[in-house]
Amino acid sequence: MPRVMAWTSRLITIAVLIALMGCFTGAQANYRRPTRVGVSCCKEVSGGRIPASIKLMGYKHQNALSPCVDAIIFYTEKEKLCSDPKAPWIKNRLNGLKKIVD
């Protein structure tokens, strides 16, 4: 009988060690280093009116969070235009445009 108990005790110890190793290696596998994220935002704005000849596809309001500034980003087919949200012509230009959500 003592041999059976010793054998069972060893099996339990081995099983616990294997389970602990699985926990530690599983925790390391779930850890991912953060990726580099480039800051792509308006760092300055223009108060100048966007000509009516430029076709706008949509817009997004960008909140100020350094280095980004408070801005309305207008999207055209080829580029993004950073405008001052306090400019008087902004409200009229936003009418009919689709708000873009990232």
Rank of each mutant, 00 (worst) to 15 (best):
L11I: 11
E44H: 11
P51S: 09
A19G: 06
I18S: 14
T13C: 11
G38A: 06
H61F: 07
K55W: 14
Q62W: 00
A52K: 14
A29D: 08
E44N: 12
Y59W: 09
R33S: 09
V45A: 00
G26Q: 10
G26D: 08
R33F: 05
S9Y: 03
L65V: 08
Q62Y: 02
L20S: 02
G38C: 05
G26H: 12
A19K: 04
I14T: 11
Y31L: 04
I50W: 00
G58K: 01
C42Y: 00
S9G: 15
H61S: 06
I12Q: 04
C68W: 03
L20R: 08
N30E: 09
L20H: 08
K60M: 14
A52V: 14
I12H: 02
A27G: 12
K43P: 02
I14R: 13
G48A: 10
I14K: 07
L11M: 14
T35G: 07
L56P: 00
R49N: 03
G26M: 05
N30G: 13
P67Y: 09
R32M: 11
S46G: 08
A64S: 13
A27R: 11
C23T: 03
M21I: 15
T35P: 01
A19R: 09
P34I: 04
R10W: 07
V37R: 07
R49T: 01
G48W: 02
Y31D: 08
R49W: 03
G26R: 05
T35C: 11
I12W: 04
G47F: 01
D70E: 15
N63M: 06
F24E: 08
S40W: 05
L56Y: 02
P51L: 10
Q28K: 12
T13N: 05
C41N: 03
G26N: 13
H61V: 11
P34H: 13
R36G: 05
P51R: 01
N30A: 06
R36I: 12
N30Y: 09
I18F: 10
G22P: 03
H61Y: 04
